[in-house]
Amino acid sequence: MTLEQLLAETQPALLQIKQQDLADISAAKDWQSKYRVLMQLGKKLPPVPEKMKQPHLLVKGCESRAWLMHYHDKAQDKHFFVLDSEARIVKGLMAIMLCLVNGMTSAELAKFDLCHKFDQLNLKPYLSQSRGNGLTAMAERIKACCPAK
């Protein structure tokens, strides 16, 4: 499987998350409901084949292993990402991040404020410090994919 094929399989899932699940998470009143939705998000993404999970794709700062792949459509200046994680919560949170950033231009990506987005989803109070650190690490990794100006 190529990265392009994986991306093509991932996009519909991300679209569904963006259109439906984000609202569900935002509306969920207690932690159980939020986590129930979060747990399902990762399951919606197609798994990354083991062969593609190369060590250089590992994101440091997560308690569980997580892999991030990047594809830059230079002609249209659009960035796309694919990820996988051993842990469901991380995968769910990353799915939220990806549905927000996939398809962004370099300029949009550089401006993207993950913390603000998670605030809007009313998620931050439900994330532990270490989980937050892992997210920040992932957000930095994603931003680092922007070509330098």
Binding site: W31, Y35, E63, S64, E86, A87, R88, I89, V90, Y126, S128, R131
Partner: peptide, 13 residues
């Protein structure tokens, strides 16, 4: 079948 980090986070909650 579950990652221990997920279990610990749900206990943390």
């Amino acid at each position: 079948g579950e990652h221990p980090a997920d279990v610990a986070e749900l206990l943390n909650q």
